[in-house]
């Protein structure tokens, strides 16, 4: 990972004053167990948010509620002013602006890398095949593996598969990118190649919410770091104050545990 570049300054020029993502009093229960408690959050365009916390804190659940892979029971999830509701078609329409990268990659193993990328543009956006393919190739170049286009997912290494997954999400030109522990399933030597792609994506101005344990990445890229514990947001701060001077005892305990090695 490139550590020579100075950490990003906090120059926030908001193109619009309305948040792209708004969580208002959102609560979610699994059965009778409350896993998210009254989450309030605003994310503005171009912001990079890193979410961290111990396992079971609800960070994955929260990010999956943002694109309704999990359905919340109370409160609102509002994307660009439109709230998710009971209308399935409307929900699909809202979801188009959000791309997601999973911990387990979830590439389609029976399709080639190129076909993985072009499937959604062709079938959802009705793009002609050659246009979709050139879009896919340009994105494969952006994630630096254009030569793997005709291979199949199971023939690639973990790091390559995750980069393909990022490119696949980008093919739909989303406004927001969600990352659910993108490097947790990777061998250590492959983590950096994926983080480099994510840094380049961040530098290009993409609105990103990343759930991760990679604290160096947070320092480098994040505008705000969110710490969650037991279903609540405990602390939100820019990376400098967050890592150097956390305000809450919980946050300090967590940081001491993960930054120790």
């Amino acid at each position: 990972m490139n550590t020579n570049v100075l950490p990003r300054e906090q120059t926030k020029s908001k193109t619009s004053s309305r948040p792209v993502i708004e969580l208002v009093g959102m609560s979610k229960w699994f059965g009778s167990f409350q896993v998210l408690k009254d989450i309030d959050l605003q994310v503005y365009e171009g912001e990079r948010i890193v979410v961290c916390g111990p396992s079971g804190s609800g960070k994955s659940t929260m990010i999956r509620c943002i694109n309704q892979l999990e359905v919340h029971q109370e409160g609102d999830v509002i994307i660009n002013g439109e709230a998710f509701g009971n209308d399935v078609a409307k929900n699909d329409h809202i979801r188009r602006e959000i791309g997601m990268v999973f911990q387990q990659f979830n590439l389609f193993p029976h399709l080639s890398v190129l076909e993985n990328l072009t499937l959604a543009p062709i079938w959802v956006k009705e793009m002609p095949k050659h246009e979709a393919e050139s879009l896919a190739m340009s994105l494969l170049e952006r994630v630096r593996i254009p030569e793997q286009a005709l291979k199949y997912p199971l023939q690639l290494s973990g790091g390559q598969q995750q980069r393909v997954a990022i490119a696949r999400a980008l093919c739909m030109n989303p406004q927001i990118m969600l990352f659910d522990e993108p490097t947790s399933a990777l061998d250590p030597e492959m983590i950096n190649e994926v983080l480099d792609v994510m840094i380049e994506l961040a530098d290009s101005g993409m609105t990103m919410i990343v759930v991760t344990h990679e604290m160096n990445f947070a320092r480098r890229v994040a505008d705000r770091v969110i710490f969650m514990d037991q279903g609540e947001i405990v602390e939100v701060a820019p990376p400098g104050p967050f890592f150097d001077n956390p305000r809450y005892d919980r946050t300090r305990l967590f940081l001491s545990q993960i930054l120790h090695h």
Binding site: S27, W29, G31, S32, F33, Q34, K37, D38, Q73, E74, D229, Q230, G231, E232, V234, P246, R247, Y248, D249, R250, T251, R252
Partner: peptide, 21 residues
């Protein structure tokens, strides 16, 4: 730092909406 750290008071878990459980 100890006296500067704020103690976090977690919210109580509420029961789920009755129509869902």
């Amino acid at each position: 730092d100890v006296d500067k750290a704020l103690v976090f008071k977690p919210k109580d878990a509420r029961p789920a909406p009755p129509s869902t459980v």
